[in-house]
Design a protein around this nucleic acid. Sequence first.
DNA 1: CCAGTTTAGCAAACCGGTTTAGGCAACTCT
DNA 2: AGAGTTGCCTAAACCGGTTTGCTAAACTGG
Lengths: 356, 356
Amino acid sequence: MSNAPVRRPRIADVAREAGVSKSAVSFAFNSPQRLSQETASRILAVAATLGYRPHPVARMLAVRQTTTIGILSPQPLAQVFANPFFPLFAQGVATVTDDRGFGLLFISPLHGSLRRAMERATVDGIVVIGLEESHPEVESIRGSHVPVILVDAPAWPEHGSVGVDDETGARAAAEHLVALGHRELLVVGVEPPTAMADFSPEGVTGRRLAGYRSVAADHGIELGRDRVVVGPATFEGGEQSLLRAWSDGLRPTGVLAMSDAAAAGVVQGGRHLGLKVPDDLSVVGFDDLPLSRFIDPPLTTVHQPVRLKGEEAARLLLLALSSPPGSPSGEHRILETRLVVRRSTAPPPEPARARG
Amino acid sequence: MSNAPVRRPRIADVAREAGVSKSAVSFAFNSPQRLSQETASRILAVAATLGYRPHPVARMLAVRQTTTIGILSPQPLAQVFANPFFPLFAQGVATVTDDRGFGLLFISPLHGSLRRAMERATVDGIVVIGLEESHPEVESIRGSHVPVILVDAPAWPEHGSVGVDDETGARAAAEHLVALGHRELLVVGVEPPTAMADFSPEGVTGRRLAGYRSVAADHGIELGRDRVVVGPATFEGGEQSLLRAWSDGLRPTGVLAMSDAAAAGVVQGGRHLGLKVPDDLSVVGFDDLPLSRFIDPPLTTVHQPVRLKGEEAARLLLLALSSPPGSPSGEHRILETRLVVRRSTAPPPEPARARG
DNA sequence: CCAGTTTAGCAAACCGGTTTAGGCAACTCT
DNA sequence: AGAGTTGCCTAAACCGGTTTGCTAAACTGG
């Protein structure tokens, strides 16, 4: 019994023990048909008794492939996971990575820097979610050496992308509320509370807002900056947003929320204010997450194929990975949205209707 | 203009271009103080114009560290993300990994094999969540060469672990229902639909069931195998579970769900059956996820510190990583649970109460 | 001016695998 | 018997960095 510290066995140990070369050991694991039956199994047996496993990092370096893709988000992971949209999206990409045997690494800013995080990430390609054109570090992503697919972000010709028709979806939501007779509207945006001079029309928030506003404009309804409040896309975020708007003196009869989570929070917030949904307050969400059917009342919302979005992004990325490097990965896929009317929307209450 | 394919620049390219050795370039990046001011910045400048970034895999290999930890779950990722418990847990671990500059890799079975997935994972340590002692590949985890922290799993002396006092929590839930007068109970378990001969008392499900049953036994209430139905820990899973039980002829007045997601589904399922919650049906969940306050009625549930669980697991793991190898990482931390009474529970309806 | 100490940078070993090019026997064919 | 195959295995180069001595020059003090 030796008292030497137990080092992880390496390929050379197996080779020596089995009386063969390193190459032979490597072949035994990766292309056993290049060895005689007996030799291969003898090597494998020796490896097993030694507890040898090929070192994954060394392997990655040698084959120049990690068989892992990254999901990159510009927000800290803890924040990202707070939004129920995200797990659903992740489900989509996980479905295809699982199927194709790829690993999944979550990339978030390293000490505030996306560039540093990307430099550290050992992935073959990256799915970027929720990046705004105005982000200070977009360049570090554009200049990435690995294939990139953008999700819900401005389309760059050199990278593939997948998104949904946000503006049309937003229009449908607004039309619905207006058709019911609402004229006092409140928009609950989902941006993380980054200070932005204004909403770039490039981002998700911007596109949806444009949709809401174009409908408002069509009907002579005011929907200025003061009727837009933003918060995190979470239950709490939505609840706070409504309460804040209320205490600012706004008295909307209809709320256009940019996420179901926020919408659910708005419903709850309304309850705290003594408002019945939909009798006193209508709210329409965005996403159509599973939870939207399970809150009370079931949420009227704009459906978008979130999981599919993840799947498509992953598929596009894996496609780019298997194509010769340099070939255009620039497919841009836009998925459809549609309004799903449930029971969180109704005509505005009498006094408001009279006013309208 | 050369037509050579653009190779990623490597350290040797920078060295040549800057007229220094590879070591100097390495120092410029990792310990610039070992170089003169000018040399260091000259190297960095050359590196910048060349677009050079140290290759992360090569670096990992050389320093024998990945600065990444893994979250391993025995179920496919797509399934894991469907359970709202998980993102919350992930939030916890992400909080500390973000803070400490570690990456986060999600490890799920590779083509059905946990062992294969682990062999491929380039991580310094692993947090294992939701592993049952009966899992066929536990051994490949016990024998892992990297530090491991088990969450909600049987404590192994050689690995640290964190869990909660499931049985006490479950007892509290059952006591609550029984105290309200319920005697017709249904348990909704959260196991993935793996065929198990019986519920091992080692697993989460087993421990909670033991808690429920011990209370039932104390009060002479029957809670046999036929009153336990299991399904995925999702809204849909809970809904289906109740409907299935109902169509099997069970007529519970109180439901003990092992997850909030399932509990929310049960509430919805009850609605479909024309049952009012809590008037006709009481349901108590487990977890106390954020959503439990936002469904209607707000859910009575057993609180467990899910996010904290993630944080503690990550902290324990990082601690083990920074300790000398071989030192005992075997701290076992049990967090507390407590019943949170909201509005999904009430005395059973009259006919049942009369019967009881 | 010389011994002793810093400073700046280099060469070479190393991390742990994969893969290409080839060598040597044994076998086949003529 | 000699040339050409085939089967099995090896040596050596390579992936792209980090790190450990070590040397040569510059500086310090007596």
